[in-house]
Design a protein around this nucleic acid. Sequence first.
RNA 1: GGAGAGGUGGCCGAGUGGUCGAAGGCGCUCGCCUGGAAAGUGAGUAACAUCCCAAAAGGUGUUCGAGGGUUCGAAUCCCUCCCUCUCCGCCA
Length: 423
Amino acid sequence: MLDPKLLRSDLPGVASALARRGFVLDVAAFAALEERRKSLQIEADRLRSERNANAKAVGIAKSKALDVAALLASGESLGAGLQSIEKDLESVQAQITALQMSLPNILDASVPDGRDESCNVEVRRWGVPREFAFQPKDHVALGEPLGMDFEAAGRMSGARFVVLSGKLAKLHRALAQLMLDLHTKEHGYRENYVPYLVNAAALVGTGQLPKFEQDQFAVRGDPGFYLIPTAEVPLTNLVREQILAPERLPLKLVAHTPCFRSEAGAAGKDTRGMIRQHQFDKVELVQIVRPEASYAALEELTGHAENVLKALELPFRVLSLCAGDTGASSAKTYDLEVWLPAQRRYREISSCSNCESFQARRLQARWRNPATGKAELVHTLNGSGLAVGRALVAVLENYQQADGSIGIPTALKGYMGGDTLLR
RNA sequence: GGAGAGGUGGCCGAGUGGUCGAAGGCGCUCGCCUGGAAAGUGAGUAACAUCCCAAAAGGUGUUCGAGGGUUCGAAUCCCUCCCUCUCCGCCA
């Protein structure tokens, strides 16, 4: 959510800032609503103030045993007038809130212009894609003989699910372990175990609702739940409605969870293999920081995600997402893309975002600023470190041998019980 | 799932229809005291919205788990829901 004060004080500025994303803000409609809200609220406040004074006068009169009939009558008529104004005010305010909740974050000035992913800017590369003396296979061809079973998953669940068995399942677990150990031991994150089912308010807080309802899996029941699309949701919601002491910042949080996504808008996209699944594991990094520290934190957090790929010795590149490709909650995002030899291209494996105060405002997540003594909004950041399923894909494809067996990255050997090769 | 007890400010906790945004305590801030500190002592210390506005100050409103109701007036009475605790049952 954007700062409502900014929306009132500089509506044209907000509109032109959002236009960078291709988002059209109806300035006239919003201004009209805001105008109406203002006059209704002033009137409601005035009536309430009168009513309160009147009610107080009743109490005083009664304590002096005076006649209160006239005061009671005027109180009643004030109440009636107030009721109708309040009804209008409520409806206007609901419209304003709905509009505010539909607005994406304002982009940082350093975000490149552009309409879609073709305009993303590569900021650096690491590693050199390996030259194969044979035709490299994709992870499906490599994985199926080793225990990657899409048919079994299809029978019990349907498309976009997978069963991993034996050494592949172990490799999957090893990847998650490596990531958690790296982030907790080397990068200073605190590990968390969190709920995978959350309420709607939690998703509103991080920005998935109300706009992206169709991307979520909802669970029936009363109250209903949503399956988390990422651990960003529970981790960031840890600071919901909290006022943090300054010495607690930055909060650096990590969790390994499954993630559930309906992939509603991705019909026909990446249908082969493990690239795009309804359920996948991810190790997620979240930082809660002082506002002035958030851009340094974004660089740091992105580096932490990169370190996983470096540890695995997987070639990757870092993109600065352009205006049109940056997620609604984010002010600036770096994507990490890992090299996939079978596709002969880089594919997204991590996305690291600075949401500034966008989520914090929805969550009412604040810290006590010692400089002002006031409770002020924190900045929140999140990044995958990394998507475990896609990391498995990358290891299979990049470490494949001519005979279809898979080498084990040095960093994973300790987690694989001494295995050096999957066959 | 059943029975009971609760949810009040940064924290603990009093408050069952009216001058209550809320006693008291803890914590914190600033002073006094002291060579300095502790102890003692005095004062201050909620958030949000909105109006005015360059800003400060100020005015008004809302908020005592959430939502609704009763009333001239609700932390307090009624209804629904959520959460916590204790006991019982079931269960990984």
